[in-house]
């Protein structure tokens, strides 16, 4: 009996059936192969995992730094209060009206009327260590302060809106506007933001550097794996192993490196955070942040970021290596 060839249409049907049916058989074998390769090149695997871990740690530090800066900025902003002095002519009804009006402006968080006595107390508290100022104040015999308005804005950037609001002609009679306090607060925020941007840029650069190094290292590890299995791979291709069957073990090997690296980073993170925390408290003082608690609150973001980056590193490099060295 003479056997004729399958035609392409039949091959298509054969292919679809085969792909689904063999997927589960293949995946077990691919995992087994990847596991063996992982242990066979043990030291190379250790180096690869270390590099991926370093990339993940640098990304985690960058993320922690972002959380810390955001926290500091929030605290500074929340504490920024601007006092606007009222003139002598300001009457209680006018003040009440102004307070109500300003409280209605969406960008303003809170407006509180501070009486002259309260202003005096605040002044004394501020300059309690400066005897000369206190003595000068007492020598006046009267309270030189007028009342003032204590204003908090939602966002410090919205200060021009507030300035525009209080600069209306109808308030000119009762308000003495000094922009200096606005600018001081804004400059502080700008300065923190600017430093944080620079550090963030540096951290970002370091992370990209480690990610690129990781891609190269994983690429080389997979390439070595392919090289040490070249005979087997050549035969596989010759006897008709599917492309997936040949490539999958190497892709899975890459994913295996990622998983181990993520676990290591997660295990190391808490001791590292505990080690950094006292230094962070010293440096930031009242602006400090509880790192562990903060990361716990953002755990899904942290996990998603780490898994995303680890998968990016290994899948991209394994894919490139298998594509380059496993041409079918």
């Amino acid at each position: 009996m003479v056997r004729s060839f399958l035609i392409k249409k039949e091959v298509d049907i054969y292919y679809n059936y085969f792909f689904v049916a063999m997927f589960f058989i293949d995946i077990y074998r691919a995992f087994k192969f990847a596991w063996q390769s992982f242990w066979r090149n043990f030291w190379l695997s250790i180096v690869t995992i270390t590099i991926i871990s370093l990339a993940l740690i640098s990304v985690s530090l960058l993320l922690s730094f972002n959380l810390i800066t955001a926290n500091v900025l929030d605290i500074v902003q929340a504490r920024t209060e601007i006092y606007i002095d009222l003139t002598d002519q300001a009457k209680t009804a006018q003040i009440d009206f102004l307070v109500n009006e300003l409280n209605r402006v969406p960008d303003i968080k809170e407006v509180v009327y501070v009486t002259p006595d309260q202003t005096l107390e605040r002044f004394k508290a501020t300059y309690q260590d400066n005897e000369l100022v206190i003595q000068s104040l007492e020598s006046l015999g009267t309270n030189p302060f007028t009342g003032s308005l204590r204003i908090k804005v939602q966002e410090i950037d919205q200060f021009p809106v507030l300035l525009e609001e209080i600069s209306k002609p109808e308030y000119s009679e009762i308000l003495e506007i000094d922009n200096a306090e606005f600018y001081q607060a804004r400059d502080l925020i700008t300065s923190i933001s600017s430093y944080s941007d620079k550090i963030e840029g540096f951290g970002f650069g370091i992370s990209i550097f480690f990610i690129l190094i990781s891609v190269i290292v994983v690429f080389n590890t997979i390439q070595m794996g392919i090289y040490s299995h070249r005979e087997e791979i050549g035969i596989m291709k010759l006897v008709g192993a599917s492309n997936w069957f040949v490539r999958a073990p190497f892709l899975i090997e890459g994913v295996l490196y990622s998983v181990v690296a993520i676990l290591i980073v997660l295990i190391l993170f808490y001791p590292i955070a505990a080690l950094i925390q006292p230094h962070l408290d010293n440096f930031l003082g009242e602006y400090t942040l509880d790192l562990v608690q903060s990361i716990n609150q953002n755990i899904w973001l942290v996990l998603a970021l780490e898994i995303g980056i680890a998968m990016f590193i290994t899948v991209v490099s394994s894919f490139l290596a298998t594509r380059r060295y496993l041409k079918v």
Binding site: F5, V11, Y14, F18, A241
Partner: peptide, 24 residues
């Protein structure tokens, strides 16, 4: 053309199925 199948236009995923029909 092998069995009506123009293998000069073969897709990468089809190659293994061609090779299972050809012993080398």
């Amino acid at each position: 053309i092998i069995g009506g199948w123009d293998i000069t236009k073969i897709e990468s995923y089809e190659i293994p199925y061609l090779r299972r029909q050809i012993g080398v």
